[in-house]
Nucleic acid binder design. Structure first.
Lengths: 224, 224
DNA sequence: CACGGTGTGATTGTCTGACAATCAGATTGA
DNA sequence: TCAATCTGATTGTCAGACAATCACACCGTG
């Protein structure tokens, strides 16, 4: 016996919409027919078209504006990680894996950071600025936020947007552990930040790598 | 003047559903309330709930079965690849950045891979197995699939699940370039795979790193 | 008692019709 | 000329209804 499930209408709709985009060779920003027109040409109800377009829009393939219409969208990783981030099934890794992943990420970008730092002085200024703000901050909560921002900026300094997005994603998972980090000794962390910047400014990649690894792995000691 | 767009009901719905999953600590496979119940608790119509669930389902965060109900889904990147890769102009990621991100990722995991390789011989067997299967494969499409699998396994060998997930996500974005890689010289790639394994097995991290970087960056030459 | 077919309630899937909200562009007025 | 306003087009949301599908209890038969 065959299961042969009847294909769902909205799935056909999504496929047909995608086909339409391909056939018409539409580029991001181009207009699509209205929902009503799509429904008529596909021979289905507007509701099913809507479920299709909303799904496509969720992924960034389409954009819709009230009173205007549908346009072809532009997919970026930011959007995906935003929705994927909370899902435990994707990243229900233990704390050690999160730490190690972060080490891989932040040490891996250092060569790129150093290269861009040499070309653009504002990067170093920005990082030093953050570091000093962390030092002068008295509120613990504020400090944590600034620390997160520092590491974000470090990744961003590499110019590799996909990694920045992934780093933010990891942060979301670290938040779970922020509570247990309350009593962390921030002094060592502060000095670490400055040393990292120094090494990068001098293009001493290996030294910076060691420093970053040590800095991040220091959190390992406080594993629940 | 303030723009202050009224937030759309379905967006609130998606957020609330995600919050619900978090608060209840639901794992993949767990049941969710019915659409009607969700609509009532959120104080909105079932239609808006539906648009939310359909979007979430499209991404793989939820699953819905007729006559059964909603369950938390298991995200597989394959599903996303299917929808993401279909049109080249839609992706907002720069090819160079994708390449560099991949370099960071795959070179960064090498120390972890080498360590686990020394402890678990099956890892090396698995990688060598894949490499030889790639060599004996005549079908180009098959070769690409196996090549993707090789790099996936390399990441997986690190034992760092978050990075594996991210690598898969990157693959989804790479897919659109597979076409332009058709005429790539696979011979050099093949030898590269073996050399990478050799270096890792010998715990020569630096050599392996150089080899991986060279291997991945070789694609840079074929930028559209 | 064992077991396969059957019914039944619950749940998602789809449709129809209606109205509100929003926006771009035309119209109007000073 | 230019700014305020009107208007039509389009998406956003709602309500109600019925069909399709599935898990599970029920029942009859051996």
């Amino acid at each position: 016996m065959q299961t042969l499930r009847r294909p769902k209408v909205r799935d056909q709709a999504t496929d047909q919409i995608k086909q339409f985009i391909i056939k018409q060779k539409l580029a991001p920003g181009d207009r699509l027919p209205t929902e009503t027109q799509l429904a008529e040409t596909f021979g289905i109800s507007r509701l099913s078209v809507r479920e299709a377009t909303k799904s496509l829009e969720f992924l960034g393939i389409l954009e819709s504006k009230t009173g205007v219409g549908l346009t072809v969208g532009r997919i970026d990783m930011q959007r995906m990680t935003k929705h994927l981030g909370f899902h435990s099934g994707l990243l229900d890794a233990d704390f050690r894996q999160l730490i190690d992943s972060r080490v891989v990420l932040e040490t891996g970008v250092l060569p790129y950071v150093a290269r861009r730092m040499a070309a653009d002085p504002s990067i170093e200024v920005n990082l030093r600025n953050l570091s000093s703000r962390i030092r002068s901050s008295r509120d613990l909560k504020n400090r944590i936020a600034l620390d997160v921002q520092f590491h974000h900026s470090l990744l961003a300094a590499s110019g590799l947007q996909p990694l920045v997005a992934f780093g933010d994603l990891l942060d979301a998972f670290f938040q779970r552990f922020h509570d247990s980090l309350k009593k962390a000794d921030w002094k060592s962390g502060l000095a670490s930040h400055d040393r990292i910047i120094d090494h990068l400014a001098a293009a001493h990649i290996d030294e910076a790598t060691v420093e970053v690894r040590k800095h991040i792995e220091s959190h390992k000691e406080r594993i629940p």
